[in-house]
């Protein structure tokens, strides 16, 4: 659907400053119907990439290609895109309703459709009670909800969101994530950037990972998880007497009531379990250490 092809972006504000490479030959694509997370630390080049996709800034080299299903010219393509910028600001003296109407009209919707869509989405976003108020009276979470509503009001085929969940409270994050999942289930392609890894891990089926302007990973979340090399096991057991273990223990922690917690590698778990049973210990639990996407992300040195 969208192909980001060999894009390099170099910023150079004036003759005296060193050029800054924000994106270095980055290539990825966003297929139809996918839910793609765009991951990277602050300054990795996520927002720059989104600005290039939306034609706010031009790449130094490379190009962005849109499939014909989105449209043949820029105006048709943009009819099929819903975009929410990072920390969006709105016209403070307009009411929420006026702003939604404004955005709907710009997307080519007639008055009746705008009304229908506002009536449909406002309760889902829990913003219906405040639509007659001026936007300057809205909290950050409320502005984010109104902004999100403007991206889906015109039934776009693809939704592009820049850090949509940052700065929201846990309930707000959960609600917006639910809406993202809902619109994705309705068949829309979702591409959203975040530096909050658990959000992407939770709802995306694919992840694109940028680090210092370079593409580090582009693939499924499950493949990335499988690449994690840490495979330790936590074994808890009631150990009534002191035992001299032959198994190589990574860690052993004494807990109350004769309970001990052992950390062993995948290869040593069977020998520890056998040793515990042969010494008359009761095994309480055996669990594999879960590696989160966040740990993979922060432990990576650009070698994913």
């Amino acid at each position: 659907m969208i192909k980001f092809h060999n894009v390099t972006k170099i910023f150079k504000s004036d003759l005296l400053t060193q050029p800054f490479v924000a994106l270095n030959d980055v290539t990825f694509d966003i297929p139809d119907g996918s839910m793609v997370g765009f991951l990277g630390a602050n300054g990795a080049g996520k927002t720059t990439s989104l600005k290039i996709i939306m034609d706010f800034i031009r790449p130094t080299s490379g190009e962005v290609l849109f499939s014909e299903s989105l449209g043949k010219n820029k105006m048709d393509i943009f009819k099929n895109i819903g975009f929410l910028p990072e920390r969006p600001y709105f016209y403070p003296t307009l009411t929420g309703y006026d702003f939604l109407k404004f955005m709907g009209q710009l997307s080519g919707l007639d008055q009746k459709t705008i009304e229908t869509e506002i009536t449909r989405w406002a309760p889902i976003f829990k913003i219906d009670y405040a639509l007659k108020r001026e936007l300057k009276t809205y909290s950050k979470g409320m502005l984010q909800r109104v902004g999100f509503m403007t991206t889906i009001l015109h039934h776009p085929k693809i939704i592009i969101l820049d850090e949509p969940l940052s700065g929201l409270d846990p309930i707000g994050r959960k609600e917006l994530k639910d809406v993202i999942i809902q619109v994705h289930k309705e068949g829309k392609t979702v591409f959203f950037s975040s530096h909050i890894v658990p959000d992407i891990e939770e709802i995306c089926d694919r992840v694109i990972f940028l680090k210092e302007g370079k593409l580090v990973y582009d693939g499924s979340v499950s493949s990335l998880m499988k690449k994690a090399k840490v495979q330790d096991y936590f074994i808890s057991a009631i150990v009534p007497q002191e035992i001299e273990f032959k198994t190589n223990l990574k860690k052993c922690t004494q807990l109350p009531d004769q309970l001990k917690k052992f950390v062993v590698s995948e290869n040593d778990r069977h020998s520890l379990i056998t040793e515990l049973i042969s010494n008359g210990c009761n095994i309480v639990s055996v669990e594999m250490q879960k590696v989160s996407l966040e740990e993979i992300f922060y432990n990576s040195k650009g070698d994913l």
Binding site: F56, K74, F78, K79, I81, P85, P88, S107, G108, G147
Partner: peptide, 8 residues
């Protein structure tokens, strides 16, 4: 951004 991201 809110305006030019639309067919305008």
């Amino acid at each position: 951004y809110m305006v030019v991201a639309r067919p305008v």
